[in-house]
């Protein structure tokens, strides 16, 4: 199954060679609360990185800063070579995101919604792109139904179609399978794997679903109370903590138990 239609040329400048996402000293303070505390990381082009952490760890705020929806208190964030505070419009056409906490107009049909987003992202042949996505994501049966009348699983597929409408080079996903049944969640993960493999896209995924992170991510950045407490491949983290699953690693981190070698 192919959800991409072709590669776009990279800009021929130095920025094109830097990692897709670079965060340096990224900090967000709300009043007396520090949501994100001076985190630094880079995500290589074509890789899938997971932001893993419990509720309130700072995952959504970090994603918000990467998109330019939340202004950092301190630090810098660059996506595809663009400073997301000052020049986010340079990168936005080549990015997209999906979150269960963001919706699309309910009274518009799926096709109408996708058409609007196709135009917003400047997709050259939006109608053809919608048909391609409808095939790839099995939207055909409800493409002309009102979005508000769809089931949670169908809405997730539509949100994914919207996130892929512009064939983004960088895809930001905030808990993409939250509230989905295991079968639908597995289906969504397969589509993300397919997109990444076909397009060579960079994906950053915020989640607290361990099996999802283990399956999709080349690398896991573990957040706790706004700080990066560990960072590595899933295999490296399992070895470091002497555990068999990422869930056990997650619990070790959440409960303040350090890596095996550090204890």
């Amino acid at each position: 199954m192919n959800v991409h239609a072709g590669q776009r040329a990279e800009p021929a400048d130095a920025a094109a060679r830097e990692p897709a996402i670079v965060a340096q000293g990224l900090t967000k303070v709300y009043g007396a609360a520090t949501a994100v505390d001076a985190i630094s990381f880079a995500v290589a082009r074509g890789s899938v990185a997971g932001l893993l952490g419990g509720n309130g760890a700072g995952k959504t705020t970090t994603i918000g800063m990467l998109m330019g929806l939340v202004l950092p208190t301190k630090g810098t964030v660059r996506v595809l070579g663009a400073d997301m505070v000052r020049e986010r419009y340079r990168a936005l056409a080549r990015m997209n995101f999906e979150s269960p906490y963001v919706d699309m107009p309910h009274r518009l049909t799926v096709r109408q919604n996708l058409r609007v987003f196709g135009r917003l992202y400047g997709v050259a042949d939006a109608e053809q792109r919608i048909e391609t996505l409808a095939d790839a994501l099995a939207l055909g049966e409800f493409l002309d139904r009102q979005t508000g009348k769809l089931s949670a699983g169908q809405k997730t597929r539509v949100a994914l179609a919207k996130a892929l409408i512009n064939e983004p080079d960088v895809l930001l996903l905030d808990e993409p399978t939250a509230s989905l049944d295991p079968d639908t969640a597995d289906w969504v993960r397969a589509r993300l794997e397919s997109y990444r493999a076909g397009k060579g896209a960079t994906i950053l995924l915020a989640s607290h679903n361990m099996s999802e992170v283990e399956r999709l991510c080349d690398r896991v950045i573990m957040l706790k109370q706004g700080r990066i407490v560990d960072d590595g491949t899933p295999a490296a983290l399992l070895e470091r903590y002497g555990r068999e699953t990422l869930e056990q690693v997650f619990l070790d981190v959440a409960r303040g138990r350090g890596a095996a070698g550090a204890e």
Binding site: Y89, M95, V102, D103, P105, H106, L120
Partner: peptide, 18 residues
């Protein structure tokens, strides 16, 4: 307000729409 009611505003704000 239609965008707010439908929780679509974040989609728009992170699109290339100026």
């Amino acid at each position: 307000l239609e965008e707010m009611w439908s929780r679509n505003i974040a989609n728009l704000m992170m699109s290339p729409l100026r």
